[in-house]
């Protein structure tokens, strides 16, 4: 089967967010990005193998770089990388098949749940759920911390004038964490829409 014939049967563990997550003018916006292709590589040869495929490998641990066709690559350890494709890019789906058996690194299957959190209330959302002060964190550097008790990787990014936070976590926590964040986001929306006394 070539790449164009691939039909994804994956379902997002956060698909219940879709109904209310894309509205604009919200204090906090939650977007489910779990269906973007993800892939990992771990081992001493991972960086050079990725570079041979045109991936600009971040030099420092926890740094990230954009992929040529959208998406991003994050260095999550000295010899460990996490890659996520852009919305129209399926190239990562075949990365695992390109790795020769003799390679001195291990391809890692990644099925993380993924969120994009946007809006002026994003930091208020994290202030209620995360013990790490994200407002002091540099852009494009992943932070491993906990959100509502769930271990997450959080990548602060700037998109135009607005900050956004990419969040990855184990999919078994997707329903719990998605519902918890959605509830807090709704409360922040409601609080913002109430007339001040």
């Amino acid at each position: 089967m070539n790449r164009s014939e691939r039909v994804s049967t994956r379902q997002s563990p956060l698909q219940f967010l879709a109904a209310g997550a894309v509205a604009t003018n919200r204090v906090v916006g939650l977007a489910d990005l779990s269906l973007l292709e993800k892939w990992g590589a771990k081992g001493p040869g991972a960086a050079s193998w990725l570079a041979e495929r045109g991936v600009e490998v971040p030099q420092s641990i926890y740094a990230s770089r954009p992929l040529p066709e959208g998406g991003l690559v994050v260095r999550v350890g000295s010899d460990e990388f996490f890659l996520e494709a852009g919305q129209l890019d399926q190239s990562l789906a075949s990365f695992g098949e390109l790795v020769p058996a003799s390679a001195d690194f291990t391809p890692v299957i990644r099925e993380d749940a993924a969120l994009r959190i946007t809006g002026r209330g994003s930091l208020d959302l994290f202030a209620q759920t995360c013990g790490h002060p994200l407002q002091q964190s540099p852009m494009d550097q992943i932070i491993f911390t906990r959100v509502a008790g769930v271990s997450c990787g959080i990548l602060p990014q700037s998109s135009g004038d607005e900050l956004q936070y990419r969040v990855w976590f184990d999919p078994s926590y997707a329903v719990y964490l998605g519902e918890a964040l959605l509830q807090i986001a709704s409360e922040l929306d409601n609080a913002a829409s109430e007339p001040s006394v």
Binding site: I61, G131, H132, I143, F144, T145, R146, G149
Partner: peptide, 10 residues
């Protein structure tokens, strides 16, 4: 030593 100062809960 890798991630810096973090709350005990982590």
């Amino acid at each position: 030593p890798v991630n810096g100062p973090r709350p005990l809960q982590e």
